[in-house]
Write a protein that binds this DNA or RNA. Structure first.
Lengths: 141, 141
DNA sequence: TTATATGCAAAATGTTTGCGTAACG
DNA sequence: CGTTACGCAAACATTTTGCATATAA
């Protein structure tokens, strides 16, 4: 973990929020959480810090088929499952496919640094209450 | 290939643009191309048709670490490589990992319908002219 | 003490939508 | 002909930015 340039209380809270949840929150959800601690924090500060933390590789950014981003406090390589019904994003605890990068490098002929793998489908809890479209949950705690 | 509800000249052009390029264009690039044929086409029409074509599974939507989407006329399962320097997205012609979905299903316990795999790194042409940051190419024809 | 970060509000970006008109089948 | 799609422009949601002030090191 590299040292950050400055650890403000705002930055600390944002990092805390991300590291103390297993969900994959949006900027807005992080904002709501952070405001419980620091009511005057601004959304601009949330975005500036998220950008900063991504650059410092303290967190990672996720992007699925939606208009907004999600963030993940877990920077280790791991895979995700996205439920098409409720929109929930969960970690998939399966072994990392280490030789994939080399395989791809042979094909594309460039430098392959890493990869990202996402699964799509319907999660168990949506299957159970097997109905049409659930209301989307932004984040489950 | 399911029949589309109506094949307007606008929809045809959008489909043509996507199917006659191996790049993975943004809505805006598609708009520029379509305007060469049909100068009065509107961006709203582009978006409406892209959405429609995704639903009909005539094209697929891609989403990477950026603020905008890309689209792909190739609906078969295949993987992508994203160059961190020039932003280009290219196909990775490697075998599809068919048993991955089953593996993930065992872990998450839901229904896993499909997966998406993306590689990140620096492409050959950026490595060759090995300089800092290239100007971003939206799409190469 | 000074560079870095903040809050606020305004701007920018990418996408969607309402409405009256056009045109596919 | 009736329904579906269009062009246009305004609305929307998310993210970024400029500026004057505050604060961590």
């Amino acid at each position: 973990m590299k040292p950050l340039k400055r650890m403000t209380k705002q930055r600390k809270i944002i990092l805390d929020v991300l590291q103390s949840t297993t969900c994959h929150p949006t900027a807005d959800w992080i904002y709501e959480q952070a405001r419980k601690e620091l009511p005057d924090i601004s959304l601009g500060t949330i975005y500036r810090n998220l950008q900063h933390l991504v650059q410092e590789e303290e967190i990672q950014e996720l992007n699925y088929g939606s208009t907004f981003r999600r963030f993940d406090g877990n920077t280790g390589l791991h895979y995700h499952f996205v439920c098409r019904s409720c929109g929930q994003v969960m970690d998939v605890d399966m072994p990392v496919l280490r030789d994939l990068n080399g395989e791809a490098a042979q094909v594309v002929g460039g430098l392959v640094e890493d990869h990202r793998l996402e699964f799509y489908g319907i999660c168990r809890s949506c299957l159970d209450k097997n109905q049409g479209i659930e209301e989307k949950k932004e984040c489950l705690t």
